[in-house]
Design a binder for these strands. Structure first.
Lengths: 146, 146
DNA sequence: ATTGCAAATGATAATCTTTCTCATTAATAA
DNA sequence: TTATTAATGAGAAAGATTATCATTTGCAAT
């Protein structure tokens, strides 16, 4: 039984910093996540993790993804389609948002400080502190004006 | 077998206008929806519909809710908690958004024309026409400053 | 009013995603 | 190295939604 070897990923370090036990499976999943710049669902994460270390179960991926979300390491997203999708949480700087192509389903990320500020203002004006923003806009590519 | 009698609701009319067959069940569900100003899930809609007419099945509620969504009569929302929730779609005027109390889970609606405009601008700037906005912000009630 | 037919419904099975259970294994502190 | 406590694997279970199919119903044309 061979142990796969690869360096600790930034997320693995984060995991340790938060005092979470760093098991082999979590190291693997953290590695896979650090390597991803898209929004995989659990099934997809499982596929990628098994590439790195086949002795991992999908139950553990579900558990880990939930654990990481509870600890602010991951963010869960809902782009429709019935399954949750995940991405590495933003740092202290501004959030980012998602534009979803109505026809292709493609996800395009964007940032917008003005939007950050406005949302913060609105929420504060209602007597709340902003905890999370869940925003995705669905758009359709404009026909080129002739 | 008694037929329940109640007037056609605004949503029932909308249903007819879109050329959808207006069955007894759809009339009932439309009635219940027109009567609701919250964000019920399917289970809750079913409960309310059965009050009006007991011979309705939950399968039909699922079917109708989907049909209405496809025809722009209803909007599906995701407030977490695993089940879809529905509300009557906004008209041509501005959208409305949702603030969710992080502690109680209560949903508070709000409108904001500035936000409407900003989102529209951002999306247009990326070469898209805005189709739908899915925005909910999670907030925590501010401690009163002493 | 009747009739005919495509579409909708009811009841339940099937599916899909996610969580739970519990016996086994492994990570961390002493 | 060992003890202890938590994590894992495999599969069962749960919860939400969709599909199946025989029966019923809305509605357009008679």
């Amino acid at each position: 039984m061979k142990e796969p070897t690869f360096p600790d990923s930034p997320l693995a370090d984060l995991c340790r910093e938060r005092g979470l036990k760093l098991t082999g499976q979590r190291r693997t999943i953290a590695f896979v996540l650090s390597d991803s710049d898209d929004h995989p669902d659990v099934e997809e994460l499982y596929r990628r993790a098994v590439e790195v270390d086949p002795r991992i179960s999908i139950a553990t991926v579900y558990r880990t993804v939930r654990l990481f979300e509870e600890n602010g390491i991951l963010q869960r997203r809902d782009f429709g389609g019935g399954r949750a999708r995940y991405e590495v949480a933003d740092g202290d700087h501004g959030d980012h948002y998602h534009l979803i192509d109505a026809d292709s389903g493609k996800v395009i990320e964007f940032e917008n400080p003005e939007l950050d500020a406005l949302l913060d203002n609105i929420v504060r004006g209602m007597g709340y502190d902003l905890v999370t923003t869940r925003l995705s806009v669905v758009g359709r590519k404009k026909a080129k004006p002739r």
